[in-house]
Structure formats: C-alpha cells, structure tokens
Amino acid sequence: MILRIFVFYPCWFLMLNCWCASLTNSYRSEPITQIPAEISSLQLSITHMMHNQPLILKTVEYRNPSGESFTITRFRYFLSNFSLETAAGKMITLPAAYFLVDEANDTTKLIKLNSVPTGTYKSIRFLIGVDSIRNVSGAQSGALAAETGMFWTWNSGYIMAKMEGFAPAVASPTHEFLFHVGGYKTSDNVLKYVSLSFPQPVVVSRDKQPQINILADAGKWFAPDTISFKNVAVIMAPGVNARKVAANYQEMFTVKNIAN
C-alpha cells in the first residue's frame, strides 16, 4: 500500500505538470498581435574636403588661416548616436552604432544606418566622437576595439578625432603635428552633436534607401578659434586645445545633396 502511494503521487504530479506545460505552450504559440513598424535603411556618403577641393593625403600642400603651409597624413574620427527628425518634427533615435571614418579607407566613408523606420525625414543628428558611457565601459569591439589606435592607454578614453601631418611652422625636428582630440569628462568634454537639415525631404521606404551625400571640410579645424602650428603642434591629451579644435570642427559637416 505504501509503495502504491509512493508511486502514484509523483505520477499525478508529473501528469499535472505536463498538462500545465501544454496549456502555457499553447498560449505562447499564439501570434503576436503588435505589428512592427516597417524598417528600412539609409546611407551616408562622406567626402572629405579641404576648403573647396577634395582632401588628398600626403601629397598636396594646404594653407591654414594663419598662412602656414602643411600636408595631412592622417584624418579620422568617430561618428555615433544617430537620430533622425521626421517631417512632423519627431526625433527618432536609431539603435546604437559606432563608425570610425578614415580618409585612408574608402569603405569607412560609406555609413549604412540600419533599422530606420520608413517615413519622411527632414534632418539628421549625430555625435562626433564616442559617448561618455562607452569611454568607461571596458573592452569594446568593432570600430571601438582598442587596436584601432583611437584609445588612450595612459588616461582612458577615446580619441574622438585625429588629424596628423607635417608643417614647416612646427618647431620640432620632424615638423610633425599631431592633433589627437579627446576628453569625455565634464571639464574636458569635446563631444559635439551635429544637426544637419536636408535640402529636401528624405523619404525612406521599403524599396527606397536614399543616400545622403555629406561633405566634411578638414579646413574648419583651424578656425574660427585660430589654431596655428606655431602655437599648437601637439595635442595628445584632453584639455583646452582639444576643446578649441573640437569647437571648430563641429562646423565641418554640410549636406551636399540627397540621392533618392
């Protein structure tokens, strides 16, 4: 008798369990009623300029507003935290994505923004640099991986933008200038949001992934707050000069046109 009870009770328990499980399963298999917004994408194509001419690394000599001649060997920066403004004026924040745009690498100048809800947009907003949270969150991957050389090792934080080159006005024996612009803490913050209005409404639909052609003028780094190589040749830490350059370069982007 005791044995019978011992076996029957667990059996009942098991049967009940199975029954409940099948019930909850049948609930789960019901279709999701919420219809997701349609998702498409758009592209940003960035062309680097020096004043009115396309930027050419190493071989072409340029002149800054102080009249100093220079060549550029490296030009790269992070873009992140994209959002779009709908025709109705509503801001749509796109999923977190980080891009390292590098003049030396053409594929990086084409940015594909995924997960864009279909609709009509009138402007775009993004951050030049990497938001403060990612600066303190440890090891990262992709564009943010440490081996890209855009992360300071001795004073943690991303180099948001980098311009390197040579200028006779630099007093050092190599005449090299190094502008490594970074700093995410309150007092050193160089993070700049850029808002660009589109010249015409941009329509994103399932079969329409428009391309926005953007110009980025490296010449803007030197003005309006004058940066001359005689006074500033090396920026390799957060601080006053980094903030000055960032305040200048936040004006470097313009929308050239829309390729619908």
Binding site: V136, S137, G138, A139, A146, T153, W154, S156, G157
Partner: peptide, 16 residues
Amino acid sequence: GGVNNLEIQPLTPLTD
C-alpha cells in the same frame, strides 16, 4: 588612476 576600467588595464602594459 588614469585607467578607468579593469578590462582595459592590460592595454597599457601591452603597448607601452
């Protein structure tokens, strides 16, 4: 205190 996260601490001695 220049390095702000344990995960990226190895970066400094590796590359210095």
